[in-house]
Each structure stands twice: as structure tokens, then as C-alpha cells.
Amino acid sequence: MDKVRHFVEQSWLLIVSAFFFGLLLAGTDYALAPTIRQNRIDKLNRLAKGLLAEAEHFIEVEEKIEIESGKGKSKEEITIYKAVGEGEQCVGWSFSVGGPGFQGTIYLVVGVDAGFEKLAGYRVLSSTETPGFGDKIKYDYFREQFEGAPVGELKLVSTGKPEKIDSEIVAISGATISSEAVVAIMNDSVLQVKERMRKKGLIDNGR
């Protein structure tokens, strides 16, 4: 009994304040959680709208698509957003996917057209690439190479014409690893997502 009394005497303040701080945190989280979730969706939408200009709004596809990234080493669940244009017609798909870059993970928002045949491009959601070199993956001249490129295996080359839209992507000079990373993320994700979505009947089986 003495022990318990001693324990309570020493720590009552800690226990009481922990309880109240816990309540405070729970309250804050309850109040702010919807805003935080909305922020994420807003950002995704903003980026995806830049890719799919015809889209009026985006609908979250109920089913999660599971892909294997890093040559099958890890599994990742991604949420697909359906871009809806005028007259409730599907104008494309968009999803966010991450992969290893030169430093840390690169998160991209990828846009694809309605039939999953052509890429609509990508936007960088977040990355920690070297300023001046690797972060050029955010620049238009590199990104535009992806816009309209066919869905399929993309190839990184060190020389070529960036203006030509095909499956060959011209690397950023001085930032080969970052360019490679973007191409690898695209290759890893887009085809798998297409495959899974076709299986689930979300896009036309005939095509």
C-alpha cells in the first residue's frame, strides 16, 4: 500500500496532465483531420487537372489497384482517380505513385488518357532531388517528352530530339539518375495499372 501511495504521490501530475494533453490532441485532430485530407485531395486534383485539361472533376475509384514496384520487391496500393469531363464522360485517369530517386523518394502524379493508350504526362508531387541538376525533372522541357508518349516500355537515351514524342526519353544532362528514376517509375507503374484495370473491367477489354 505504501508503494502505491508513493507512486501516486510522485506521478499524479504526470498522469493527470498526460490525460488532459491527450484530450487536447484528440480534439485538435478531430477538428483538423477533414481539412488535412481535403488538402491532399486538392493538391492531387490541381496537379492532375494540369495534366488532363478537359477534366471537370475527379472521382475516386473505389477499388484500390495493387502494383509491384522495384522489380516485384514491394507491393504498393494506389488509388486511381477517374477524370470526368463534360457530360459525365471519362477523359482520362490519374494516380499518384512513388519510387526511389537520386536522393529519397520521388512522388509523381501520372495522367493517362481514357483508353490507357497515351500518357498525358506527369507532375512531381514531392521530391528531394539536387537543386540545379536532379530537380530539372520538374521542368517543362523534360516533362513535355512524356506528354502524348505511348503507354508501354519507355527508354532513356542520352542524345536525341526531346521535341519528338515517342517512347524514347532524352535524359537531362548532368542528372541521368534522376531521369532514369522518373522513367523507371513510369515503366513500373503505368503498364501494371493498365493490366490490373483491364482485368477488373474498368477499361475496355477490347482495346
Binding site: S17, F21, L24, L25, T28, L32, T35
Partner: peptide, 22 residues
């Protein structure tokens, strides 16, 4: 006690930033 107090308010600040300055 100090750490407990500080951690609480840091978490609040973090949540606030995430909600209003994403």
C-alpha cells in the same frame, strides 16, 4: 513533464500547419 508538454504543443502545431499551410 517538459517533454510531454512540448510534444503535445508540437503535435498541435504540426496538425495546424498540415491543415492550413499544406
Amino acid at each position: 513533464m517538459f517533454t510531454l508538454t512540448i510534444a503535445t504543443f508540437v503535435t498541435i502545431a504540426d496538425l495546424f500547419l498540415r491543415a492550413y499551410f499544406p
